[in-house]
């Protein structure tokens, strides 16, 4: 009797497994959250030191364009104006995404809607291969092909935002494409069937149904691409010119947040102002990507509501 009662009241093997599985998943997500918090705290505490410890004015930091952390200006404030880097980072990223997105969407449509077989056989491996090309190699190809090319056409030195954009375009293309493919694939088959059954052409189906339904996913893809462009350091550093000047045009040497960070971090001493200022750049990088994420979330939500109604 007791035996039976115990057996009945005991949670089944399946339930226990369920609980275990759930715990594992929660643990994993907990780990990631811990990690993110850790990194955020670390960068924030390092990045804020410029403003708290070295008493640099935040507003001044992001709106002036004089970056000489080793020197003081006439009033005794350190000269750390990050505006040129911020502007350049934004321009390079936006331009690269702008150029890459139509290409990525075109390829993704081809791979999912037009010729799935050839897409999977031919394009998929090539795109995956592209992701694997190290950024250093992109940088050197940029340095030996793109920079002379730009110099030839536009004059100047060839270093600058345009070269950076072209290198980044190729680098973010696989990221945006593969994520767009995923989101197009996630559009339920019956959407397509319904649209075709209504007599829509393939393009009408793609344009009016599939792309609409996949918009939030595509936006995420673009953001991921932009994130990669934003954070890319080694390749950009080689072609952008690294001059801390306000970019006058697309072919004058400029400097992004990441290129400045990579160039200088090894030459500064931990805990001094030049080092802190670099961490502030990293913090800006972080805040900007946070902002992008929020934007996408907002757009994504609105897109969803439209779809539902």
């Amino acid at each position: 009797m007791d035996e039976i009662q115990r057996k009945l009241q005991q949670s089944s093997k399946a339930t226990r497994e369920d609980r275990l599985g759930r715990t594992i998943c929660y643990t994993c997500i907990g780990l990631i959250i811990m990690l993110v918090t850790c990194i955020l705290y670390f960068i924030a505490s390092k990045g804020i030191a410029t403003f708290t410890k070295d008493h640099v004015n935040v507003w001044q930091f992001i709106t002036t364009s004089n970056w000489e952390p080793g020197n003081m200006d006439s009033k005794g404030h350190p000269m750390v104006g990050a505006l040129p880097m911020i502007v350049t980072s934004f321009s390079v990223t936006l331009l690269a995404a702008l150029v890459a997105t139509p290409f990525a969407i075109g390829v993704a449509i081809f791979m999912t809607e037009i010729s799935a077989k050839r897409g999977a056989k031919l394009l998929q491996p090539v795109i995956e291969l592209l992701v694997g090309i190290p950024s250093v190699v992109y940088g050197f190809i940029g340095l030996s092909l793109i920079v002379p090319f730009i110099r030839h056409i536009f004059g100047g030195t060839g270093f600058g935002i345009l070269s950076g954009t072209l290198v980044l375009f190729v680098m973010v293309l696989p990221t945006i494409t593969s994520l767009t493919v995923d989101s197009l694939k996630a559009v339920p088959m019956h959407y397509r069937q319904a649209s075709l059954a209504l007599g829509a052409t393939r393009w009408q189906t793609i344009y009016k149904v599939i792309l609409r339904a996949a918009t939030p996913g595509i936006l995420t893809a673009i953001i991921f691409g932009m994130a990669r462009a934003f954070g890319e350091a080694l390749a950009v550093q080689m072609v952008i010119g690294n001059a801390i000047l306000m970019p006058k045009n697309l072919v004058s040497p400029a400097s992004t947040l990441t290129s400045k960070l990579t160039t200088d971090i090894g030459n500064t001493v931990m805990g001094t102002l030049p080092n802190d200022a670099l961490w502030s750049l990293a913090l800006i990088l972080l805040l900007m990507s946070l902002f992008f994420n929020m934007l996408v979330r907002f757009i994504g939500k609105r897109g969803n509501i439209k779809n539902a109604s």
Partner: peptide, 28 residues
């Protein structure tokens, strides 16, 4: 060369004699 790098410091000490270099491309 990158600001703060040894190469640049040596060069500026020997050549510029305390003057500031023009803002330009930097490589490390």
């Amino acid at each position: 060369r990158a600001e703060g790098s040894g190469t640049r410091a040596t060069f500026e000490d020997a050549v510029l004699g305390g003057d500031k270099a023009v803002k330009s491309q930097e490589q490390d």
